[in-house]
Design a protein around this nucleic acid. Sequence first.
DNA 1: AAATTTAACGCAAACGTTTGCATTATGAAT
DNA 2: ATTCATAATGCAAACGTTTGCGTTAAATTT
Lengths: 344, 344
Amino acid sequence: MKKSRITLKDLAKELNLAPSTISRALGDHPAISEATKTRVKEKAEELAFIPNSIASSFRRKKTRSIGVVVPRIDVHFHSLVISGIEEYAYKKGYNVTIFQSKDSLTREKEITKILQNNMVEGVIACLAIETKRSDHFKNLKKIGIPLVFYDRVPSDFESNKIVINDFGAAFQATEHLINIGCKNIGHIAGPQTTGIFKARLEGYKAALKKNGLPFHSGLIKYANNLSYEEGVSCAKDFLKYKEPLDGIFCANDYTAISVIQVFQKADYKIPDDLSIIGFSNYPISRIIEPNLTTINDRAFEMGQAAAKLIIRQIEDEEVLIDSETQSIKTELIIRESSMKKRAV
Amino acid sequence: MKKSRITLKDLAKELNLAPSTISRALGDHPAISEATKTRVKEKAEELAFIPNSIASSFRRKKTRSIGVVVPRIDVHFHSLVISGIEEYAYKKGYNVTIFQSKDSLTREKEITKILQNNMVEGVIACLAIETKRSDHFKNLKKIGIPLVFYDRVPSDFESNKIVINDFGAAFQATEHLINIGCKNIGHIAGPQTTGIFKARLEGYKAALKKNGLPFHSGLIKYANNLSYEEGVSCAKDFLKYKEPLDGIFCANDYTAISVIQVFQKADYKIPDDLSIIGFSNYPISRIIEPNLTTINDRAFEMGQAAAKLIIRQIEDEEVLIDSETQSIKTELIIRESSMKKRAV
DNA sequence: AAATTTAACGCAAACGTTTGCATTATGAAT
DNA sequence: ATTCATAATGCAAACGTTTGCGTTAAATTT
């Protein structure tokens, strides 16, 4: 098990050169002649020399790795973001280390503590649901570790953010329902303690208002975790509403699918009697019948953008920008669940 | 940005102690008196001392991190495995660094090369689809890095593996169809170059054979990537089969759902006319109507088992076991798609 | 021919922590 | 009073790489 591996010094001895020369030769330093460079590289190849990246990291104080803190890896949205991060980071020669907070504040605090150990050069994070105050992240920033948040971003301090325009997307979705002729439009909202769900609700309301549609509080159902099961119960409530709904915009796809199924069982024709729109473009949305109209939140691209931003922050010597917020363009994907056959 | 952080030496000077004493005090070494231990710890707290884990890793040759190589992070199965890995690793004080091969052999080779840089103490991997020979992983093993494969494991060299009994699970699923009265059972098979799909096909065949059901090659459709779309086309082929099928076992959930939808459109009643079973217990399987009977492949538990195994290998001084294969128990989840209303 | 530049490489320190061994002080045993 | 064990701490090297600066020899200029 314990093989002592070849070091740069070994190479040096073998070639009768100084370690510094080896180091520079392998790093293509201009002050080394081409001749010795190839000599060194050949010998390195021959002896299967593998540089000790830990020693290197230690010496230059650069680990070329970034930490990612997500609520849960197995939530499709986050796995897409991570994929985007890895994709970009890999290209740039960075590797990514993952932590899941499991939406627990305590665990998130633990993680931020761990991340202070010089392990990572930058941190990308999505706040845990439980997190209201993010001082633990401030500590990271304080010791000079660049920080980028995505999706659920802190509201209590300035920082780099990758977000989508939840308000705009919700507005667009709701207005689409209005445009196809819906008059009684409901909304399944997420927990209002979280900014993105608040924004989606506001977008919904704004679209109603702009188009002169009345708004009743009964048209909104609040869900805590937007699970499929919660969606079912919200949908059943909607069924009992005083007048029949003809459109529902849901804060995510799972609840939207609940609505489809519940209303179908109640003999509603989708989309003719009721049009439905979800949020996130989960794989299931193009499989469920009718296919679900939804918002493509471009999770993968968010990840890429986050990685790009954090790496720029890491590498730029002179950071002039104190903080930056990027809003990724969303897209309304219109599918069957909002295509009425009757003319409008 | 560039704050020079407090080091262990600084602490030592501050307290008029030797660095070695500080190190030992913080590490609760028995040879240090309780008095100085608390003195040191208090000062450390006061000055917000954060140990430099890179320096530590460098000195002790232990990084406490494990590398994970997956085809794609955003495939639900893998994100669940990663979640399981992170969960266990985190508890044990390890962190996990993720790489995606994107199912490309070249990229996988690049990654294994990177992983030789002393960065990680162990590697957990699932082979890329393209990978037939896994010499690049042998290199890792050669330099003493413990290796654990999961799901798609190499067949060309001995190594630690976390698998499920694909044969047994397929056998159980098929036999369940037989038990509820199916006589003409089809199978949508995955690429036969991959061991797990081969085993699922074999399990299907074995169940037919054991129960005296005839087997026709027309009962099997081969898919390359088992996508939803491929499933649709396989299902349409099945519709044209000389005699009507009454049961179909699919190598994954997506194709099973295609089958449900295609046959429903052809006015089949599911499960009465046709019973269907998928594989993997994807979230969609409990949402689609009728709910899909499927195999729980326990991805999360596989991840946990892989992490447990790799950490044991890392920490055990005397590794007596050369290689170990763990087979995780699967579970047939019976849902509506295989519950016939007529008695059998 | 002497002075100066340039090219190529070596020296040695440094990064922050850990650890085997040595040292000192303290109390116990002879 | 001396020896011996024990407890608590210090010394210094080591881990492998990088880097500023010094050195040498060759090439160029005056």
